[in-house]
Amino acid sequence: MSIFNYINEAKLPTFWCSGCGHGVIIKALADAFDQLELALNEIVVVTGIGCFGRSDDYFMTNALHTLHGRAIAYATGVKLANPELTVVALMGDGDAASIGGNHLIHAARRNLGILALCANNRNYGMTGGQYSPTSQFGDRSSTSRYGLPESSFDLSALVQAAGASFVARTTVFHYKNLVKYLKKGINKGGFAFVEVMEPCPTMYGKFNQLGSAGDMVQQIRDEVVPVSRWKPGSDKSPIGILCERDMQEYCRAYDDVIRKAGGFDGD
């Protein structure tokens, strides 16, 4: 098998800037699909808006390209209507954490059985490098030239607190782990959230003078530490599987509602 069963080779190279992490992430997702041997018509890739919102263009699976922040809301309808589908919501940090933050925490609370992937490059790249909810205090951006006076979300901690079954954070540097977490997330049978730290050299890197894409990947690698070695109060972010717990998935819980209402009797 090959990732090109899932990625449309004719569309390559991607339209993203050189040094962007998005291409690495969609390759990892295709790798995960491939290793799980999923059929194209069993998968629905749901996207929002932004640079990463275009990622469905490259997939040969079912695709649902929606509105800014709404990928998870659309994915909710798809999954509940047909729980047999593998539903993957692909979002950037603006998509997932800002305009779509409400859908994110509520899908986690419901434990909807989808994989939600957030490509976190800490800014709005598509619109010119504005600060996002994952930009750090003091960050420069096209809308924070004097330094950002806001603090950032710890997205993985947020989603874990909201009730997700599976939460993992990694970086585009840790490719094999990324594929592993995506596979685990898809197979979790509950709300799975994978946060991927990645560089945006064109915008975030430029405004914060972080050097080349390669320099940025090294910085991202140096900013994280495996969760097994992470201690509270550390100035580094933990990576790895941050949360894994078994709870009833939402569509299965709704099956019980149908059962109690007598809705399976006529089938």
Binding site: V46, L64, T66, L67, R70, A73, Y74, A75, T76, G77, V78, K79, L80, A81, N82, L85, N102, H103, H106
Partner: peptide, 18 residues
């Protein structure tokens, strides 16, 4: 759903499932 935005979004997703 968590709001009316999500309500219609979920409906559209379900409609695409037939």
């Amino acid at each position: 759903m968590e709001d009316e935005i999500g309500s219609l979004a979920a409906c559209i997703g379900a409609s695409l499932c037939g």
